[in-house]
Design a protein around this nucleic acid. Sequence first.
DNA 1: CATATTTAAGACTATTTATTCCTAATTAAG
DNA 2: CTTAATTAGGAATAAATAGTCTTAAATATG
Lengths: 145, 145
Amino acid sequence: MKALSQVGKYGLRALLYLVAYPPDSQYLSIRQISDDLGLSFHFVTKIFRELTEKGLLISYRGPSGGIALAKPAEEIMLLEVIKALEGDDYFDKCLIGLPHCGSAKPCPVHEFWKEVKTKLQHNFSETSLALLGEKIRTQEVRLDD
Amino acid sequence: MKALSQVGKYGLRALLYLVAYPPDSQYLSIRQISDDLGLSFHFVTKIFRELTEKGLLISYRGPSGGIALAKPAEEIMLLEVIKALEGDDYFDKCLIGLPHCGSAKPCPVHEFWKEVKTKLQHNFSETSLALLGEKIRTQEVRLDD
DNA sequence: CATATTTAAGACTATTTATTCCTAATTAAG
DNA sequence: CTTAATTAGGAATAAATAGTCTTAAATATG
């Protein structure tokens, strides 16, 4: 199941890197993130530009510049990140693509699919980047592979 | 969340039409399905060709030809259909795309994502096309929109 | 001020997915 | 046997997504 686009996958991985390995200085360079994770520098830059526009990141140009979280990792929930990367309507889509599917005009799998999406949203809205960063730092989980 | 490709969405909708509105004769023509659902005839034909190759459908050419289920709708579970349409590895993918993600090398969301996929697989493996077809016929749910 | 480092912006290219189209093969029916 | 109605096969086209590249702008530092 391809639930995230490449933008979503790379963006999330890169953000988690930033959270898991925060720099001593104020900003972490995109180059370090992309090199360390083996992702395309240009592609990550493009993704981060969007996250900066949306207010999730702040960026700073010039030597020792880079990007940083716009607010504490404790306050950034996965839900916000995924919506920023995939679009605000991410959890509103009908599984089989019926544009007016809803409780009034449910498609054959509407109820079940709604349950699944609710579970996802609920979990994502309670999972902070800080928590995941900590799990990465303690090597309970991994970001590379 | 775009969980299914267009092939998956259209294929599932077309199959459900066949189950919900079985023809008096042995075969239902693709033209009728695509016209009724407002889908591209050629695209549905291509999708059905694949399902025929995979043994889910049988087809018959010539006048009063068309397609039919290869086995009773009671015996075809959603899981089988989705795997046929989207690939057998549909439920094996890491959310953030790490190729070796698994219990040995879990990504930061591995456990939760596994739960979600298990729930999906479980439900899909217990939902038959016959059940959904019946719900459509009784207008409890809808296929068009 | 000159240079090096970094992100910003957006054009460009490549790849994948989606969709259409044309021709062939099959078969029923007159 | 001819015609019409179908699906089969696969080429061709279009659109969306993914990824690369080049140039500009900002800024620190010597």
